[in-house]
Amino acid sequence: MDLPDIDASAWAELETAAVDPQSGFRYLNLCSVDTEKRPQARMIVLRAADRSARRLEFHTDTRSPKWLELSATPHVTVLGFSAESRLQLRLQGKVELHGPGSGAAGTAWDRLPARTRMTYAGGPPGDERAFETIGVAAPADEAEGKARFGLLIFRASTLDWFQLRQQDNRRALFSYDETGALSSRRWVNP
Rank of each mutant, 00 (worst) to 15 (best):
P65A: 11
D110Q: 11
P100N: 11
P74N: 10
T73I: 02
R26Y: 03
V136D: 04
M43P: 00
L151Q: 10
P124E: 03
A105K: 02
A48I: 08
K94V: 09
S175Y: 03
A130M: 09
P125F: 01
L151W: 02
A140N: 10
E13H: 05
R170I: 08
D141Q: 05
V19R: 13
R26K: 11
H75F: 12
G106Y: 01
L46I: 15
G101Y: 05
G93P: 14
R86P: 00
R47F: 09
R170H: 03
I153G: 00
F149Q: 06
P125N: 04
F81N: 09
A147W: 00
R90P: 10
L182Q: 11
K37W: 00
R170D: 09
R129G: 09
A114V: 15
G180I: 09
Q92G: 11
G24F: 06
A137T: 12
L151E: 02
V19W: 00
D5G: 09
L87R: 10
M43R: 03
L152H: 02
P4E: 01
A121T: 09
R51C: 15
M118P: 02
S175N: 15
D34K: 12
P113T: 01
N189Y: 01
E132K: 14
V33S: 08
T60I: 10
R165G: 15
H59T: 11
A18C: 01
T60Q: 06
A108K: 04
L3M: 02
K37D: 12
H59F: 14
F162N: 08
V136L: 10
E178C: 05
K146Y: 04
V45Y: 06
L164N: 01
L56K: 04
A49V: 15
V76S: 06
D50G: 13
L89A: 04
E96D: 11
L14F: 02
D20K: 07
E128Y: 04
L30C: 08
A49D: 06
G135A: 13
L68E: 13
F131H: 06
A49R: 13
